[in-house]
């Protein structure tokens, strides 16, 4: 479960104070599929960094999986990211000269998990992300954009995280491939009950989630259930 309590974030840059978030309050239950939507400059990226334990709030509390992570050190945050969060980025961020399997196993290297377990977990994650096994030994720079994002999704799944955080996951993909990636998230949410937070500026993408939190100027403008949920397929045609 995720709980944000009155979160403020202000950046201090060479004496200039830039307030970004003004009292963000919300809760996300286990197994929810939530979209955080807002135009650029709304503070959604900053919120994503806090949710992803990449950054800490200036004030307020953030509970992830029941643990207050708002006042941890850099290395403690790294541990939290490693065990509780799976990231999916807009630009995939794969190690281009490494094989698919190696990329997916990477988080487990930092989790001190034995080699056999790593391989097994990676294969399961790739299976769940829907990448066919004949691609697993390919170098990641030999894959298409959609396949790369599936590898990235598998990498996010591999440590069995409490939260999957997807930052504009369809931003670098064409509409059709983007649909499939969104379908994959829906499938993971439905079938495996993964908690997913999707950050996007596109209402169309946000409409694939069950709940939409609309952010503007560092505040929550609207937090509602999505009644017109778009359902996408996760299967390649």
């Amino acid at each position: 479960m995720i709980k944000c309590k009155d979160i403020y974030k202000t950046y201090f840059n060479s004496g200039v104070e830039t307030p970004v978030l003004f009292g963000i309050d919300f809760e996300i239950k286990d197994g929810e599929f939530v979209a955080i939507m807002g135009p650029s400059g709304s503070g959604k990226s900053t919120l994503m960094h806090i949710l992803g334990a990449l950054d800490t709030p200036t004030s307020g509390e953030y509970f992830l999986d029941g643990k207050d992570v708002s006042k941890l050190t850099d290395d403690e945050l790294a541990g939290i990211r490693n065990s509780k969060i799976g990231f999916v980025f807009q630009s995939f961020n794969l190690l281009s000269r490494a094989t698919v399997l190696r990329n997916v196993m990477l988080p487990l290297v930092y989790a001190d998990i034995s080699k056999e377990h790593r391989k097994k977990a990676a294969e399961e994650a790739l299976e769940a992300a829907g990448l066919s096994s004949d691609r697993w030994e390919h170098l990641s720079n030999q894959l298409s954009g959609g396949q790369m994002q599936r590898v990235a999704i598998a990498r996010a799944l591999v440590n069995n995280p409490a939260l999957i955080l997807a930052d504009e996951p369809t931003g670098n993909l064409d509409t059709k491939t983007g649909e499939i990636v969104l379908g994959t998230f829906q499938e993971l949410n439905r079938k495996h009950a993964h908690t997913i937070v999707l950050i996007t500026h596109e209402p169309y993408v946000a409409e694939h989630a069950d709940r939409i939190i609309h952010i503007q100027d560092g505040k929550i403008l609207e937090d509602k259930k999505n009644h017109q949920k778009r359902v996408a397929t996760h299967i390649y045609q």
Binding site: D74, D75, G79, R81, N82, F87, F89, N93, Y110
Partner: peptide, 10 residues
């Protein structure tokens, strides 16, 4: 950046 994001410590 990626390695740090997925849990590499300093």
């Amino acid at each position: 950046g990626l390695r740090k994001a997925i849990g590499a410590k300093r």
